[in-house]
Amino acid sequence: MSQEYYYILCPPHAMTGGPEALHQLGNKLIKLGKTVYMIYFHGSADEIVYSHTVNHDRVLIIPQYDAPVHDAYKHYGIPYTSCIVDNARARIIIPEIWPHLIDKFLGAKIYFWWLSYDYGYQAVESNKGFDVFRSLSHVNLAQSAYAQKKLELLGIAQSYILSDYTSPNNVCLNIDRSTKKNLVIYNKKGQFEAERIAPYVKNCNFELIANMSPEQVRNKMADAKAYIDFGPHPGMDRMPREAAASHCCIMTGLRGSASYFEDVPIPSMYKIDTSGDYFEHAGNIIEDMVLNYDRHLKNFDFYRKKITSESTVFECQIKSIFLADI
Rank of each mutant, 00 (worst) to 15 (best):
Q3E: 13
Y165H: 08
P63R: 08
K104E: 03
K202E: 14
H52A: 04
R58S: 09
F206E: 02
V36N: 13
I92A: 06
Y111K: 09
R255P: 00
L22F: 03
L9K: 01
K74S: 05
W114C: 02
Y146T: 05
W114T: 03
N205Y: 09
L162Q: 08
G107Y: 02
D325W: 10
I30K: 15
N187H: 05
N27L: 04
D273F: 04
I321A: 05
Y40N: 07
F302E: 12
D57I: 07
K74G: 01
L154T: 04
I228D: 06
S167F: 03
T179N: 02
Q216A: 15
G129Y: 07
Y186L: 05
I318G: 09
G190L: 08
K202G: 10
I272H: 00
N27Q: 13
I326P: 00
K298F: 12
E262K: 05
Q191C: 11
S144D: 02
Q24A: 11
S126T: 13
G107T: 01
D103M: 12
R255E: 08
S2P: 09
T252M: 04
L254E: 10
I307M: 07
H247V: 08
R241D: 01
V59C: 07
L60F: 00
P267Q: 08
M251T: 04
F130A: 09
N292D: 11
K225S: 03
I250W: 07
D273L: 10
F112S: 07
A157M: 14
I197M: 13
F322A: 08
A194R: 04
L106V: 15
C316S: 13
K74W: 01
V132Q: 04
H56R: 14
V132M: 04
Q191Y: 03
T312V: 14
Q143L: 14
C316N: 13
D273E: 07
R295V: 11
K319V: 11
V36E: 13
D131T: 07
F133W: 08
G120Q: 06
V59Y: 05
I92C: 01
L9N: 00
G107V: 05
R58P: 00
N170P: 01
G190V: 12
I156M: 11
H56D: 13
Q143R: 03
H138Y: 14
G256Y: 11
K306T: 11
I326N: 13
N170Q: 10
G129E: 03
R177S: 07
Q3W: 12
